[in-house]
Write a protein that binds this DNA or RNA. Structure first.
Lengths: 123, 123
DNA sequence: TATTTATATAGTAATCATTCCTATTACTAT
DNA sequence: ATAGTAATAGGAATGATTACTATATAAATA
């Protein structure tokens, strides 16, 4: 894979935030540095970066978000503000339970917990 | 909400399978009974049925699938054949852990476990 | 350094799932 | 049966993502 300023810029943008940005948000940021970058370039490079193990795709409903945190972790999704927060809940038991009970080889567990974050406490 | 044959047909189709069908699959099936049903009607009624508590939407990557099983349960997704299987893993501990540790009110936990189902055992 | 070769890009068109719009149809209460 | 209203069919619009293609550029070579 050949170096490109575009890919490096996209990687830096994803790594600079913990907001799990969408392709469109990344596109908007990238234009500040490379004004004529195209959205197709953003998508293509996000896919490359995923294959390189530099980031992973998470789905928030039907739209893709990109996460630089490659450690096993889950997400809290606030139904009020829509924010996604990283959490470490990894229950090692799940993997072996699933293997034994359902004869299913686990690659990875994707868990999103939907609710209300502490910014929206009722008085 | 007024009765309609379309909504009833759609409900029966979702309830007749455990394949977690997509809107398009449901549309194809519904056409057998109501040849001139439209895709918009399928989507609108799936949303109605969800609001009525008759089914729920789950996301498989970026596409919506519909599930008549309203009991709390999770899904195993086979990366080989793409099938989604229902599983009961519900760990009651997650809810209280998340509430205490992250001050987050949990509404529901969406977990998909990706791996390989037992139809694809290597010899 | 200049030349070559191949890969990445910009820009645009195409695709796909889903939602929106509107004139028409059909339940249901009177 | 009729009026009133909610649901429908059909098609257009939207939004995210992917595909296409001529041009630009990284990097290997002379």
């Amino acid at each position: 894979m050949r170096y490109s300023q575009q890919r490096e810029t996209i990687r830096e943008i994803v790594y600079s935030t913990n907001t799990h940005p969408t392709a469109d948000w990344i596109f908007g940021r990238a234009k500040r540095t490379i004004p004529n970058i195209s959205l197709g370039t953003v998508y293509r490079n996000l896919k490359c970066l995923e294959e390189m193990g530099e980031l992973r795709t998470i789905f928030d409903g039907s739209i893709a978000r990109y996460d630089w945190n490659m450690d096993p972790h889950d997400h809290l999704k606030c139904k009020v503000c829509g924010d996604l927060f990283d959490v470490q809940l990894m229950d090692e038991g799940i993997q072996s339970t699933v293997r034994k009970k359902y004869k299913f080889e686990v690659d990875n567990v994707e868990m999103t917990i939907v609710g209300t974050c502490n910014k929206h406490k009722e008085k």
